[in-house]
């Protein structure tokens, strides 16, 4: 009886795992199947031409470049905030300080706030500051979105680092600042993983940039101009009744998927490197 139960459940479990695998393959193959015919060099090298949304010539270079601008900008902001903060809670504050658990709790909540709320909040902030939908707005909103993601994953990896290393360094007479420098070098691969994860989420999110970055067919030349992004570009092209445009949406989806796949494998590579260097 119990052996039968064991066998049946094992089969069910394998089925569950296989279904999940199949769904992943299904998702990727669906996107590729529909998008591949429309994918061309023009897609990644040209701006949308006149009548692009009616099926005429052009590509989504505007969205690719816009996405890159936004993610680079928001990364700069969030790295400058996350790294010192994580070092602060892990190395300056005592191991079981109330303050650090308050910070971690608020990070958890920030992490859980839906991207649409960041978008809405960012937009109302922009109105307050007198900005309109622009590259800067997009950078700020995406920055807020990815900051807790980065902090949390970086914090988790930093916590893994044994507390002995700081003690050893302190006993050698180094100051806390010098200690942080040494440790930061140890933590580099972990930081890279955190950054790649954050980029993955930031690039793929549409709801944050929906109001804050706006949309345009051109490449923004200053922070005040609106910027297009890949997810939104996919969304708008999908909304078109013209079939060619829809197919191009799938092609854009391939571009986005490939970017994410590369980032995700990159993150995996760096984190495996990290575990090798771990003490």
């Amino acid at each position: 009886m119990k052996y039968l139960e064991e066998k049946i459940l094992k089969i069910i479990m394998i089925c569950a795992a296989v279904i999940i695998l199949a769904v992943l393959l299904f998702i990727i193959s669906t996107v590729f199947y529909r998008g591949l015919p429309a994918l061309s060099l023009d897609m990644v090298t040209k701006l949308p031409g006149g009548g692009f949304y009616l099926g005429k010539e052009g590509g989504v270079l505007n969205a690719i470049v816009g996405s890159i601008y936004i993610i680079v900008g928001s990364l700069v902001i969030s790295i400058f905030i996350s790294v010192p903060l994580v070092l602060y809670i892990n190395f300056y504050l005592p191991a079981k300080s109330v303050f650090s658990s308050v910070i971690r709790f608020s990070l958890d909540i920030l992490f859980g706030i839906p991207s649409i709320v960041y978008g809405a909040f960012g937009f109302s902030l922009m109105i307050y500051l007198g900005l309109r939908a622009s590259l800067l707005g997009g950078i700020l909103a995406v920055g807020m979105l990815i900051m807790p993601i980065m902090m949390r994953s970086f914090d988790e990896i930093t916590r893994l680092l044994s507390r002995d290393l700081p003690d050893a360094l302190l006993s050698l007479g180094s100051t806390k600042y010098e200690m942080a420098k040494v440790i930061l070098r140890q933590l580099m691969p972990g930081l890279v993983t955190a950054i790649l994860l954050a980029i993955g989420r930031g690039v793929g999110d549409a709801a944050t940039v929906l109001f804050t970055a706006g949309y345009t067919d051109n490449i923004p030349s200053s922070l005040n101009q609106p910027a297009a992004t890949l997810p939104l570009s996919i969304f708008f092209q999908l909304g078109s009744p013209v079939e060619e445009v829809q197919n191009r949406a799938y092609a854009s989806a391939i571009i986005l998927t490939v970017i994410i796949l590369i980032l995700s494998f990159g993150a995996r590579y760096f984190s495996s490197k990290f575990s090798k260097n771990k003490i």
Partner: peptide, 24 residues
């Protein structure tokens, strides 16, 4: 084999899931 698969799934942007959902 499964670890990267799970990573990949969690990395796929919502919009792609949306596209997949409308298509299938």
């Amino acid at each position: 084999f499964f670890e990267p698969v799970i990573d990949l799934l969690s990395g796929i942007p919502p919009i792609i899931y949306g596209v997949w959902g409308t298509l299938t």
